[in-house]
Each structure stands twice: as structure tokens, then as C-alpha cells.
């Protein structure tokens, strides 16, 4: 009897996996960098190209790094959310301007607003590769030690901000205090 039930059993197990699979987005690729120190970088700042910015800027407190570009449609879509995040004062938001022209980036910011504490310029996308960026916008949350603790891929929505980003930041802050 059991051998006749075997095909049904196998199929039902598959069906459970399919049901779980339907809830997931196959295009979202989790980063292996989560839980690891942020990859080292040293880049010019967008507003003061003569001054460099590096990992040290991201240490000492919980911070957010938002990868964006002026040519990126999704970035415009999420920009209000990024502003809301910066205005909330939960954590400083650093920008990583990815494969962009300086003038375009500056014009974009003056048009849509500049919520960033500081912006690093990754002209060639090399730092982007080190950070495992595969599409913009992407948003990283780092703890006080400069370790990547969370990564959001694609534009953030207000729901994402409320239900994922802000809670993670709060948790990391509590962790840092204890």
C-alpha cells in the first residue's frame, strides 16, 4: 500500500514548497555581506570632491547607506521615504552615488531635495561591486561597529520604512547601548 501512496506523498511535499515559494520574490538576492563589516572604501564626497570619505564615517553609531543615482527611476520613487527616514532622526543617512555624472547628481538633489548626511561618489561602480550592489536603489543598515546588519533591495516604500527599516534601526540602537 505504502508504495502506491509514495507518489502522492512526494507531490504533497512539493506542493507545500510551491506554496512557500509563491510568497517569495525570486529576483531578490540576499547579500552574503549581512553580518560582515562593511567593505572598505575611500571615495570623494559629492559636495566637496577634494575631501574623501571612508569607513570611519560609518562607525560609532547606527547608520544607513542608501545607494542611488540620478538615472535610476526607483530612486525617485523612494526618495520621499529616504527623506522621511532622514527627518525622523533615527539614524544618519549616507548616500552612495552610483555610476553617475556629478552635475546630474547635483541637479537631481537640488530638484528633489538632499536628505543625506554625506554622499560618497562611486563613479566607476567599483565600490558598488565590493558592496554587492546589483541594482539601485539599495539600502544598507550598519550597526555602531560598522557591520552590515540589514539590506533592502529595490525602492523602499513607506510600509518598508515603518515595518522593517525603523524597527531594525531601533533594535540596533538598543543593542549598542546595552
Amino acid at each position: 500500500m505504502i508504495r502506491y501512496l509514495l507518489p502522492l506523498g512526494i507531490f504533497l511535499v512539493l506542493a507545500v514548497f510551491f506554496a512557500v515559494g509563491l510568497q517569495r520574490d525570486p529576483s531578490e538576492i540576499p547579500s552574503p555581506l549581512v553580518g560582515k563589516p562593511a567593505p572598505e572604501f575611500q571615495l570623494p564626497r559629492l559636495h566637496q570632491p577634494e575631501r574623501a570619505i571612508d569607513n570611519a564615517a560609518l562607525e560609532g553609531e547606527v547608520s544607513v547607506v542608501n545607494v542611488w543615482a540620478s538615472w535610476c527611476v526607483g530612486c525617485r520613487e523612494e526618495h520621499e521615504v529616504v527623506k522621511a527616514l532622514a527627518n525622523s532622526g533615527a539614524a544618519p543617512v549616507y548616500g552612495l552615488n552610483y555610476k553617475d555624472a556629478r552635475e546630474d547628481a547635483l541637479r537631481w538633489l537640488s530638484h528633489f531635495g538632499d536628505p543625506y548626511t554625506a554622499i560618497a561618489v562611486d563613479r566607476d561602480g567599483d565600490v558598488g561591486i565590493d558592496w554587492g550592489v546589483y541594482g539601485v536603489p539599495e539600502t544598507f543598515i550598519l550597526d555602531a561597529d560598522g557591520v552590515i546588519r540589514y539590506k533592502h533591495i529595490g525602492p523602499m516604500s513607506e510600509t518598508d520604512l515603518r515595518e522593517k527599516i525603523l524597527p531594525v534601526i531601533r533594535e540596533l540602537k538598543t543593542e549598542a547601548r546595552s
Binding site: 538615472w71 535610476c72 546589483y134 541594482g135
Partner: peptide, 10 residues
């Protein structure tokens, strides 16, 4: 997806 992530002006 490519359009969404990479934008159109690229």
C-alpha cells in the same frame, strides 16, 4: 526588472 532597477536614462 532591469528597467525598474537600472532606470531608463542609463
Amino acid at each position: 526588472l532591469a528597467l525598474m532597477l537600472l532606470g531608463t536614462a542609463m
